[in-house]
């Protein structure tokens, strides 16, 4: 009991002060008086004047969405991206199925097969974004940094089927070749200085 006592004291610094709020009216007469007072004081025009003043100044800070968009933070968890390898441009996903397994809203499904190059090929991959809660576990568990979150947060659509297209998530091949693919900085990304921590296999044969 005693060790929760500290949380009750909200005065964490000297700068804090309580607002001087007048008491609420209790009788109907007092309430009526307050309405009349507020109606005829002209507070409304104070607000209108502020708007008018800013309009005339032409220094407006409102983002004109959707014409204008704010940059999104590098760790923001929006619609997933499927990344490609920098050198070859091949898809990073190896089809290990860990994202499918860890997904707590059970919205990832994949189908893999043995391809003609003796590799595991991901035949179908789908994330049901209508069900996804963007928790980021899939990005964290991915051993290849193949599935990450991206900044694409506009995912309204008329059809549920549009929420699951793998092609939309995959980095376009031209972007990789032009070095335009961006690594995800957030949940699941490799920690800084990872290179220094690597140990090499001895090759003295």
């Amino acid at each position: 009991m005693s060790n929760t006592e500290m949380f009750k004291d909200r005065n964490i610094s000297e700068d804090y002060f309580l607002l001087d709020i007048e008491d609420y009216p209790t009788t109907p007469w007092e309430k009526f008086k307050r309405v009349v007072k507020r109606s005829f004081k002209g507070e409304l025009f104070v607000g209108l004047w502020v708007v008018l003043r800013e309009m005339i100044k032409f220094d407006i800070h409102t983002i004109q969405y959707p014409e204008e968009k704010l940059p999104i933070g590098p760790r923001y968890r929006a619609v997933h991206e499927m990344k490609r390898l920098w050198e070859s441009g091949t898809e990073r996903c190896i089809g290990c199925g860990l994202c499918e397994k860890i997904c707590i809203s059970n919205c990832i499904r994949m189908e893999t097969r043995y391809d003609e190059n003796q590799r595991k090929e991901v035949g179908e991959y789908s994330i049901n974004l209508g069900r996804c809660i963007f928790c980021g576990y899939c990005a964290e568990v991915c051993p290849e940094l193949a599935i990450t979150h991206g900044g694409e947060y506009e995912n309204a659509s008329e059809q549920r089927e549009h929420f699951i297209l793998y092609e939309d998530m995959l980095t376009p091949i031209d972007d990789v070749l032009n070095k335009k693919q961006r690594e995800f900085q957030g949940f699941g990304a490799i920690t800084p200085h990872e290179d220094e921590r690597l140990k090499k296999t001895p090759l003295a044969y």
Binding site: G95, C96, G97, E100, K101, E111, T112, R113, Y114, K120, E121
Partner: peptide
């Protein structure tokens, strides 16, 4: 081969 994983 490569169609499923043990844990699935």
């Amino acid at each position: 081969k490569y169609r499923a994983n043990a844990w699935e």
